[in-house]
Design a protein around this nucleic acid. Sequence first.
DNA 1: GGATAAAGTTCGAGCCGCGAACAAATTCAT
DNA 2: ATGAATTTGTTCGCGGCTCGAACTTTATCC
Lengths: 403, 403
Amino acid sequence: MRKIDLNNFQVATSETVRDINSRIMLNLVRKHQPVSRADLTRYSGLQRSTVSAIAARLIAERWLKEGAVGNLPRGRKPTFLHLNTERCGVVGVDIQPATTTLAVSSMDSQFLAQESMSTEKDPVEFIARLSRRIKDLMRAHPRNSYEGIGISLPGRMDSSSQQLIFAPTLGWSDLDLKTRLEHAIGLPVELENAANACALAELWSGRYMDGVRNLVAVTVSDDIGVGMIMNGQLVRGSTGVAGEFGHVSQMSDGPKCRCGNSGCWEVLASNVAAVRYYAESASVRKGEVGSKSDMAKLPFGDILRLVERGDARACKALNQMAHHLGAGIAMLVTGLAPDVLVVVGEVTRAWDKVGPIVTEAVKRRSFTHAATRILPTDPEAQPRLRGTIALVLQNHFGAPLTA
Amino acid sequence: MRKIDLNNFQVATSETVRDINSRIMLNLVRKHQPVSRADLTRYSGLQRSTVSAIAARLIAERWLKEGAVGNLPRGRKPTFLHLNTERCGVVGVDIQPATTTLAVSSMDSQFLAQESMSTEKDPVEFIARLSRRIKDLMRAHPRNSYEGIGISLPGRMDSSSQQLIFAPTLGWSDLDLKTRLEHAIGLPVELENAANACALAELWSGRYMDGVRNLVAVTVSDDIGVGMIMNGQLVRGSTGVAGEFGHVSQMSDGPKCRCGNSGCWEVLASNVAAVRYYAESASVRKGEVGSKSDMAKLPFGDILRLVERGDARACKALNQMAHHLGAGIAMLVTGLAPDVLVVVGEVTRAWDKVGPIVTEAVKRRSFTHAATRILPTDPEAQPRLRGTIALVLQNHFGAPLTA
DNA sequence: GGATAAAGTTCGAGCCGCGAACAAATTCAT
DNA sequence: ATGAATTTGTTCGCGGCTCGAACTTTATCC
């Protein structure tokens, strides 16, 4: 049961009924397609006449298309309905400190094209260049309509105004990225934190046969971010900053974190932590080639490659990271008890080594009543970018705001 | 934006419109009462005619009552509407390991009567006795109707079946309390974990002038429980076990917890932790009167009394507890960023001493972008019991299930 | 060729909010 | 007093929606 938000509600009119039922139909088609009108009456509980009327409208609005006819042992053959993936396109932009990836996607979240560009320090200059690239991409891939632009970025925005309020790795601050881009391109823009975008991508991925309404995404890179979906809805917290579990202190006498605190989870379990563990083990053991500070600049990818080759020191560093990753994930499983917890980041490439350590730590440390599945994401699948698409599509497939 | 739950949705009919708008009206009256129909058109955006029609129905259904007429500088005088608190009663039951408190309340959450009984080890026997007491209480306080029974208990129930799955301190397990009581009394029963009940109580308390849709309740007694409300809705997690932050390990080499883990938050910051700190300081300092094991049986209330009298050792024990309480609360503030975090329990009686330590710890340890207010509850206000009332009333005031 | 079965359409009834017109109640200027 | 102005609240026809029964269409099987 949800409390009605008296600061942001919508009264119902007669059209609200059709709104609600259309959304339900659209989701039923998404789930069961190809599907006949008759099946939809059974799935929805609506009358046959109502289903026909809604289908007619959704076809007129080009959300649905009629397809082949099916076969049945008896009676008239059904004509199948399915989503009209041609209808609309979505632009997704994944901004990361070094490079920005942009893509156009169809309604079924299939990428039509994808390209990269460098992220710049000057946000105004960057926005100008980005909007040119987006326009070019849209021209190169014409669609009936483009519905919006979803953007994932490593930072936080105010949940109501969508003003960027915190993006340390980009060096931007207090920027109205949303309005600027909307004016430049003329499409609605949705901003979201990268971890939240990943959580959305998983929620809408179709990977979990519905039923998953509580999902946590943990992004592991140079920092650790957490995106939470509870009761089928993104949790943004009071000012949009929920999910900073990466800055929960796990070891009061641990290394200093840039947030000012000590022993934060992300200091112990992020990619840079693994690099540090590797460098430390070097200096302790022997003088060897390369100074300690050189090693501290090693990219995390190199550690993974060393692990693949069986390098003992790299393996140990990765194990340490995995151990701490497990401790933090145990906290999330214990406290949030999601149906699914997905891990995002390069570290999933070594999940055969990391996964067992993590699940063992969770099993050992957490109340076992929660049956949380801990899963790596496919590193090739670009979860952040898929999340930006989901960010726009949820406006069409999510529950309409009522009451 | 919420994802539609295809396993549990409700299609809209023409009556859904009235359902939704009635709920909105009811909440607007609750917020603004006494309030005229004309004001309600302004608050809701509905037409005057629609507001009148809905009001007429709500009056016929006895949810609302017409009251006095107001005064205006010009024009016809408005007749005020307000909630009809006489309409219905609610039964609330707060089960705790030693004693169970039951109460009957009117629709405005005012207690009409309240009494206590001992909690028994045998659940079947207990249910029989409890239902007799409830029936007597209802007979002694006749209302037009009783809407339901809300029950708070120290344990976890499956979120769908409401079967009790875990209640160690009561010694009950796998019990269908809900169905048994429903059959015995003939009223719908709502079960909820005590911490969740406290969170609900605060959400519906009217203490925060709306706007608060993300709220965390931390119950501190012999254990620590956490109830979370995110996006205006209780977070129960996959099988109803979300909120066990009390069993997040804060100190890997800390004391053993009954959950099998070490250094759990509740082992470091609960009432028994304070008692243990007190006992430890005794044994370390001197032989003195009373053995260490005697002191470990001291009730937490005695420690609070000693603190009031200025006992240095008791103060130190309380400080230690407060320090760890702050560390855990910092975790919640950092990770969940609620608008409000309320602390429930005897410890709030010494909040002048504990509060500053907690807020200092949170300020030091957490990302300060979240503007979470950390507040103690009034120990006299019986948050668990108020929560049981909210549990039933939210069925009438919460958003109806649509889509 | 008729019985049976299933898919899909048509159409009137009923619920509901909208919005304009109307009725009621009250103040204020003349 | 009296009428204009103002505000509250009601009445009523319209259009949107789903329901549900009746009907049409398209198939298979005996």
